[in-house]
């Protein structure tokens, strides 16, 4: 779990690393739309080329990139077969190259954007929604509470699983999940009381 807060971020000094997270996310969205909206096989291959070039430029580690793309393998095989049969090779290439290009570009985004930079960007982006009752600072607090809570809940999950196993009930969803859920709610109330005691979040 030690790498949880780092995620797939790899520090660096390229232009993509230095670009603020908000505009970078906008560029990623435009790129993602382009992979679907621009028709034809060659433009999609071109976009995939761009995504690969970006990945090489920011020196994405090959191993973790392959690991992140692996779940797509089945989709790629099924869709290629289906599209070749239904609409022919050009559509199959357009779809698969576009899919890989958009996912790879998003992985480049994650590799070049620290999580706290992204949190800052979301908090800033929520600013205009203040008039609808959205409070960006409370969002930031909730975000960090999630990160704080994950290790504790992982522990609860492991303990309840071990307890169910000790009773020979490891196949019973009820014996596994009811204690896990109840202990999670109890932890939430404890967290709420702790925040309240410190005067955090009540304003």
């Amino acid at each position: 779990m030690s790498n949880l807060l780092v995620g797939a971020y790899r520090p660096g000094t390229t232009l993509l690393h230095r670009l603020p997270a908000g505009p970078k996310l906008g560029l990623l969205a435009v790129f993602g739309v382009a992979t679907v909206a621009v028709p034809g096989a060659w433009p999609a291959v071109g976009l995939l080329g761009v995504a690969i070039a970006l990945a090489l430029w920011v020196r994405m580690p090959l191993r973790s990139t392959v690991r992140a793309l692996r779940p797509l393998l089945l989709v790629v095989v099924v869709v290629t077969a289906f599209q070749v049969w239904q609409q022919g090779w050009p559509t199959a290439i357009h779809v698969v190259a576009g899919l890989l290009a958009s996912v790879l570009a998003a992985l480049v985004f994650t590799a070049t954007t620290a999580i706290d930079a992204m949190l800052d960007a979301i908090t800033t982006g929520l600013g205009p929604f203040r008039r609808f009752g959205v409070n960006p600072e409370r969002f930031a607090l909730a975000f960090s509470l999630v990160l704080r809570a994950i290790p504790g809940i992982l522990e609860i999950a492991q303990e309840t699983r071990a307890a169910a196993k000790a009773r020979g009930l490891e196949r019973s969803p009820r014996a596994l999940l009811v204690p896990m859920a109840i202990r999670t709610v109890a932890q939430a109330y404890e967290t709420g009381a702790a925040l309240h005691a410190r005067g955090i979040g009540d304003d």
Binding site: L145, T191, A193
Partner: peptide
Amino acid sequence: TTDLALVA
């Protein structure tokens, strides 16, 4: 605060 903790 309790709701915030529950949501998070």
